[in-house]
Each structure stands twice: as C-alpha cells, then as structure tokens.
C-alpha cells in the first residue's frame, strides 16, 4: 500500500478570504491523502470548507478575495500551488476534473451545451495533436450518451435554460468525465434535484467511475450516499479535518464528537424520529474559536480544547481523530 505513489496529498492547507472588516480564516490546516483508484467521501455541514478545499486544489477560487497563505497540494508528486498557468492547465480536465455543486450555475447560460462541451473536449486533447471538428463532435455525442441522455444531437444545440435540472446535472457529469480524468471531484452532485432524480444521477455516476476506474472525491452531506459509494471518509468541521476512517469503520465506530453528532442528526425511519442535531452552528470565520474549533458546540469539552488545537491521533488502522478525548489511545491500533 505505502509503495503506491499518492494520487493526491494536501499538507497543512490554509485558505483565507480577505473581506471588508478582516480575514475569514476558512481553511485551518487541512491534511488529506488519497491513493490512485480510491473513492473518498468528504462530509460535513454546509459552510465547513469542503467546496473551498476542492476549489483550492484546482485553483479556481476567486482571487481576490481568496488567498492561500500556506500549504502544499501534491498531485502525483507535483505541487499544484507552485505550477505556472500552463502546467496547471495540463492538470485541469485531464488530471483532475470537477462536477460543481449547482449544475444551473456551472453551465454558461449564453452558450449551447455543444459549445461548452466541445470546448472542454478540444482543450483536453494532447498538445500538438489537435482533434478534428468531426472527432470533437463524435466525442461530444459519446459523452452525452454515456450519461444516458437521449437525442444528443439536439441536446448539443440546446441552451442550458432549455434543459431540466436532471438533464443539466447529467450534462455536467458528462462534461467532467469527457476529459477522462484520473481524479474526479464531485461536489454534492444532485443536491439541487428531487430525491428520485438525485438517486438516478448518483447511481449513474457510481457506475461510470467504476467502469472507468476513476478516483473520486465525493463531497456530500448525505451520509447514506457516502456509505454506498466510498471506501474512505474524511469528516470536516470549520476548516479542519476532524476524523478520517474507512467507510465501514466510521459508521460502526464514529469517534469525534462532531461525527457522532452528525450521525445522530440523520433522520431514521425506525424509532427515534428526527434528532435535535448538533446544537449551535458553524463558527464565525473572522474570529474562529481558539483551540479546537468545535469546542463551543462539543458536549465533551475540556479545558485543553479551548487552548490548544488537537493533533490527529491514530486510533485504529487508517482511523484518525483530531480530538483530545483520544490522546491516550494513540498508537494502540497499530
């Protein structure tokens, strides 16, 4: 396992947003690793920095206001943050591709599906060997067929406004996969759709990445989807990774108080009904809490949590928790 080169490694990533009245310290030292072929989930409530982390990888955060004061992001051993625009463009699309949260916002309203999809395909061509117009067209058709869209010829000539939400989401998936990326970042695909369509879309995505053997980072706050689709899960809270574990391990033995709260917040069909969730809300990033950022909401808060930021403690094979409750257990698992 350790001999395989890491596909993606994020080290101590900080992202701040310079806004009127100060700096929003959104990401506070994110660490993240994944192997080639892995399917990794990233969960956490809205506003905890999941999308920011992913946009930072591809460097599509709007700058200004976003600034990255420190951190390293290695893709197959090369630091993306140190690349020039040309090198970065080579990685985007073919190396790493992304499905954005809201398909309606992610499609340009004044260009047809075909114009957008073809631009992506054209630019994903290997340098020096441009595709002919015909090849581009064929591949565009193929991309739409892959995501089970009927009548691709007509669709290529349609504008996003002429499509349903589900179709737009499929187009976005098709576009992200048209470049045959090694790593696909899927940011809450289907969240904006109704549940039945969402389920179809996710099943489709699941099947496609399996067929193509694409590595995936799946961002979601629906834990059921994580359970079904991922091998390993990162739990994020307020700009920190608070727990990492193999999917099965996380669900059988969640450890961080935040993860436990998250699991309890899931409404169940049998017994219990809807829980109260975790009291409180995501902190203000202008003046985030000292120490562990979760301490104001934590039921097990101790003195040390208010002063120091917890390290990531290994509690089992591949299971890490950033919480002082587990300080003593470090090293026990391995």
């Amino acid at each position: 396992m350790s001999s395989t080169p890491l596909l993606l490694e994020i080290k101590d990533l900080h992202v701040h947003f310079a806004v009127y009245g100060g700096r929003l310290k959104v990401l506070d030292g994110v660490n993240f690793v994944m192997q080639s072929g892995e399917r990794v989930g990233l969960v956490g409530e809205a506003g905890c920095g999941k999308t920011t982390t992913m946009k930072a990888i591809l460097q599509v955060l709007p700058t200004p206001p976003a600034v990255i004061p420190c951190g390293e992001i290695y893709f197959k051993g090369r630091d993306l943050l140190k690349m020039n625009p040309n090198q970065l463009q080579q990685i985007r699309g073919r190396g790493i591709s992304m499905i954005f949260q809201d398909p309606t916002a992610a499609l340009n309203p004044v260009f047809t599906v075909g114009q957008q999809l073809k631009a992506v395909i054209k630019h994903s061509a290997v340098r020096g060997r441009p595709l002919s117009a015909d090849e581009v067209h064929q591949r565009a058709i193929q991309s739409l067929q892959e995501v089970a869209l009927a009548d691709p010829e007509r669709l290529l000539k349609s504008y996003p406004i002429q499509l349903s939400g589900g179709m737009r989401q499929r187009v976005c998936i098709g576009m992200a996969l048209a470049t045959n990326p090694e790593l696909l970042i899927a940011d809450e695909p289907g969240t904006s759709l109704d549940v039945t369509i969402q389920d179809q879309v996710l099943r489709l995505l699941h099947r496609l990445v399996k067929e193509k053997n694409t590595s995936v980072i799946l961002i979601t706050h629906t834990l059921g989807i994580v359970r079904e689709m991922t091998d390993r899960v990162y739990v994020m809270y307020a700009g920190n990774i608070v727990e990492v574990a193999p999917t099965a391990g996380l669900f059988s033995r969640p450890m961080h108080p935040y993860t436990i709260g998250l699991m309890q917040a899931v409404p169940r069909l049998t017994g219990g009904g809807v829980s109260d969730g975790i009291p409180g809300r995501i902190p203000n990033y202008l003046q985030p809490p000292t120490g562990c950022r979760f301490h104001p909401r934590c039921p097990h808060v101790m003195d040390i949590c208010r002063q120091e930021k917890p390290a990531s403690y290994q509690v089992d094979d591949d299971h890490y928790v950033a919480c002082f409750l587990y300080r003593g257990e470090e090293g026990k698992g391995s």
């Binding site: 599509v60 463009q89 699309g93 073919r94 954005f100 916002a105 630019h123």
Partner: peptide
Amino acid sequence: GKDYIAAARALGISERVVMGRFLLKP
C-alpha cells in the same frame, strides 16, 4: 466570480478562451 467560469477553468479550458469567450459574451 460565477461558477461557470470556475467550471470552465477547472475543466482545463485555456485562460484566453475563458476570458475572451466564456466571460466576454455574457
């Protein structure tokens, strides 16, 4: 700042095309 510009960049479309075409027209 729109997502479709971030998306166009994320999918590897060159900066020149993003600015001159996908940003300019709208």
